[in-house]
Design a binder for these strands. Structure first.
Length: 584
RNA sequence: GCGUUCGUAGCUCAGCUGGAUAGAGCGACGGACUUCGAAUCCGUAGGUCGGGGGUUCGACUCCCUCCGGACGCACCA
């Protein structure tokens, strides 16, 4: 589709250049020939507005369109026809050839939609970054879905991707859950209570609130515990290790459940000291300066900000110091061309400064750092607050979605039709939440409506899964010899209905969506394309008989188109980390 | 106060580097199953694109300003 569009653009540009030259106008104006999509397919498949040339040619746009059209019909053009439609020059593509290309997607399988637009580049993507004092919540699910799916999209565009997770396993907040466990835990283990281990740890973090009431010194004691931890106190380290294993172990189980994975884990406890040497180097090179009080700082006036402290006067490091060291360390580990940080938008300032600092230190790769900033996930009732207990726990959310999906399977009497109802319900639940999170533009805050996400109607993951299941069902029937499709041969020129053309177009433009999603780090583009494809298929399925079609050739062709649609749905769902279902 | 960002139908969201009558879904109302899975499809109602200026042949899209919301502005992470 893209190459066809490019070819037409070139042909139209050439015609416009000729006309401009004849009138003695600046031929450079032809750069304003840009392809667009007419609002209605009956008006054409590609549209070129002729407004930009009106002044130079002293002609009305409709006259220009007519002139370009006649010139095109005289010369050689790609397949299809060009026609003046008001002030636009519209192209009607040669539908059979596009249809043939779309149908070919069915044999391309998993490779359909892959591009080489990013081949040769190495991209590191950091996401999730959980704390080891509590289980994952809804906000993490957005981060995880965004990070995982962006990584998959980048890979689909040919990039070599390294997914990394920076586990935040140290700090005073970790010490709080430890202290709380020391007081209330009584040596119990998650197994003792039959609890998922990260929830077990999280419960003690919550209990720290009780501890503060029981013991006014609790905050101080947590600080003291941190000091002991940093000093390497054996008992403290032992407890820390034990609780961290519980926390990370439980969190990893949630990753497995949601289909999230990492190529490498970094632990903050192992690298929080790094960065000091880098700051010293920067001081030596003149990128930073030593303030009167002895602290090391950077002047941020080049980017319109104040100063930032990078090392305290006592020489200790701060968050920024750590991130500087970590970025450099990672580049040594795995030299990347780009590094993407999937982190909530509340840290925009931090990354703006961090990127500037790395550039100041003279790292070539620093210009390719990207903060994939995403908005908060709120509830219809308002913002999630840990202290108010309105945080939506990830595991509990998935459980309740699965429960509702199960009820739906039972209500529909589909238990016998699917091999494993519980597993199917789980996959529907995952599809519901991942699609809901994917369809919103990452940078914006969003409202997660559990009730709406549970709905299997409309713009949802289960709707798309359902269309995949329907097509799979058609294919099973064909394979069993039902219908006449098996006896017919594929003839793309038979696809003339509007609903068929719409599907052809969506299949043909899927690769462009993948490329755009990669270029913009935006899975929502895939989600929108998949929904449009699923909806178009549903209409097609409703309006036109496929297997039951009398003409064997038409049946075979429609089924082939359906198979191509299935390839798009499968590949797209994979990119969004949504399970595909043969039956549901 | 300064900075970043957002403000599109009752609700949740799209709207491609400015271009042809602003689109979906949910909800509401009304239709469609003796036929490939109705977890579906079709129709109706619903918007001065936060307000006001400006640039342009053309602005939801770019610029300015005001109003409103969110988030930042630590030698916390």
């Amino acid at each position: 589709m893209r190459s066809v569009k490019e070819a037409w653009k070139a042909a139209v540009s050439a015609a416009v250049v000729d006309i401009l030259a004849e009138k003695g106008a600046d031929a450079g104006l032809a750069a304003s020939v840009i392809p667009e999509s007419p609002p209605d397919a009956s008006m054409g498949d590609i549209g070129f507005p002729m407004f930009p040339f009106a002044k130079a040619l002293r002609m009305g746009p409709p006259q220009i369109a007519a002139a370009v059209a006649s010139r095109l019909s005289a010369g050689s053009t790609p397949a299809g026809t060009a026609k003046a439609v008001g002030p636009y020059l519209n192209v009607f593509l040669d539908r059979p050839s596009i249809a043939a290309a779309s149908i070919a997607a069915r044999t391309a399988g998993q490779s359909y939609g892959r591009s080489s637009s990013l081949s040769g580049s190495r991209i590191m993507v950091e996401f999730s970054s959980p704390n080891t004092n509590k289980p994952l919540h809804l906000g993490h699910l957005r981060n995880d879905a965004l990070g995982e799916s962006t990584s998959r999209i980048l890979r689909a565009n040919g990039a070599e991707v390294m997914k990394i997770n920076l586990v935040n396993d140290r700090g005073v907040h970790i010490c709080k859950s430890m202290l709380s466990y020391m007081v209330y835990g009584g040596g119990r283990t998650p197994e003792d209570e039959g609890k998922k281990s990260d929830h077990f740890v999280g419960d003690y973090y919550v209990k720290f609130n009780d501890l503060k009431k029981d013991d006014p010194q609790a905050e101080e004691k947590a600080q003291e515990l941190l000091v002991k931890w940093e000093a390497g106190d054996a008992d403290t380290i032992a407890l820390w290790k034990k609780m961290n294993e519980w926390a990370v172990g439980g969190i990893r189980r949630t990753y497995e459940r949601t289909g999230i994975s990492f190529d490498k884990y970094y632990y903050e406890s192992q690298i929080y000291m790094t960065g000091k040497e880098e700051v010293q180097k920067g001081l030596a090179s003149g990128a930073f300066f030593k303030a009167e009080d002895g602290s090391v700082r950077i002047d941020l006036s080049p980017i319109g900000l104040e100063e930032k402290v990078l090392l305290r006067k006592d020489g200790t490091s701060i968050y920024m110091t750590q991130d500087i060291g970590l970025a450099i360390h990672r580049h040594v580990d795995w030299p990347f061309d780009r590094l993407v940080y999937v982190v909530a938008n509340e840290q925009q300032y931090h990354f703006k400064v961090l990127f500037h600092i790395l550039k100041s230190l003279g790292y070539e790769w620093a210009k390719n750092l990207y903060h994939l900033s995403y908005g908060l996930v709120n509830l219809p009732e308002g913002r999630m607050k840990t202290r108010e207990g309105t945080v939506v726990d990830a595991d509990a959310l998935l459980d309740s979605l699965r429960e509702l999906a199960m009820e739906e399977i039972q209500a529909k009497g589909r238990e016998d039709a699917v091999e494993n109802p519980m597993e199917t319900a789980e996959k529907i639940a995952l599809g519901a939440v991942h699609y809901y999170l994917a369809q919103a533009t990452p940078s914006k805050d969003m409202i997660f409506n559990p009730k709406e996400s549970l709905s299997f109607n409309g713009n949802t993951g289960p709707y798309i899964q359902y269309m995949g299941a329907r097509i799979s069902s058609l294919i099973r029937k064909r394979d069993k010899g039902e219908g006449k499709a098996g006896a017919g041969s594929i003839r793309p020129e038979l696809l003339t209905a509007d609903s068929e053309w719409e599907l052809v177009r969506l299949v043909a433009t899927y690769p462009e969506a993948v490329e755009q999603a990669g270029a913009e780090y935006n899975p929502a583009i895939i989600a929108a394309h998949l929904y449009a494809t699923a909806a178009a298929f549903s209409k097609f399925y409703h309006d036109e008989p496929i297997l039951t079609c009398d003409d064997p050739d038409l049946a075979a062709t429609r089924l082939a188109l359906s198979e191509a649609v299935l390839v798009v749905l499968k590949n797209g769902l994979e990119l969004l980390c949504i399970p595909f279902l043969e039956a549901m």
